[in-house]
Amino acid sequence: MALLDRIVRWARIKSPWILHFNSGACNACDIEVIAALTPRFDLERFGVLLKGTPRHADVLVCTGPVTRQIKDRLVRIYEQMPEPKFVLAVGTCACSGGVFRGCYNVMDGIDSIIPVSAYIPGCPASPQAIIDGVVKLLAGIDHPETQAAAEESKPAPVEDRPAGKEAVEVTR
């Protein structure tokens, strides 16, 4: 069985299919993600393919802070992906909320909503940084003990958040 596990883990590392999701980014990170997929950087070398449907995807590549509008959609897309699944937060906003942190209409970083496996900071994160982040994510898959440690330190899903950040009345 150990051999089978190793083969499966090898296949997972060699074939990460990604789904690109804009959770409220300004488009700069999206352009960089698209740039990383162009022939110049050629992510297919590492087996990365961009997929249209969450059912086919292994890695959810999220850009931008989570707006309140898109929160439910992000959770839904995440839940539509089959296990095992990983989330990549691309850009400073996706990591922490960036300049939008604390705004009345955003929920900070991706990890305030769904568990994140790897963070790629940058405003915007360059294609090189994105590829480096993907490689580090895959290295994490290769060492399940670090992955398990990361799982434990993940924050709770958003449903458990205190009610302090609920809708704020805005006067014009």
Binding site: A11, K14, E44, G47, Q80, P82, P84
Partner: peptide, 28 residues
């Protein structure tokens, strides 16, 4: 296809890796 697009393209085991990964994945 990759060579015609001036890319490097996937390694030789790519289709096998895709297949094994899909077989080991959850079926929704």
């Amino acid at each position: 296809c990759a060579k015609l697009q001036n890319r490097v393209g996937p390694p030789w085991f790519q289709p096998l890796a895709d297949l094994v990964k899909l077989v080991a994945k959850e079926t929704v």
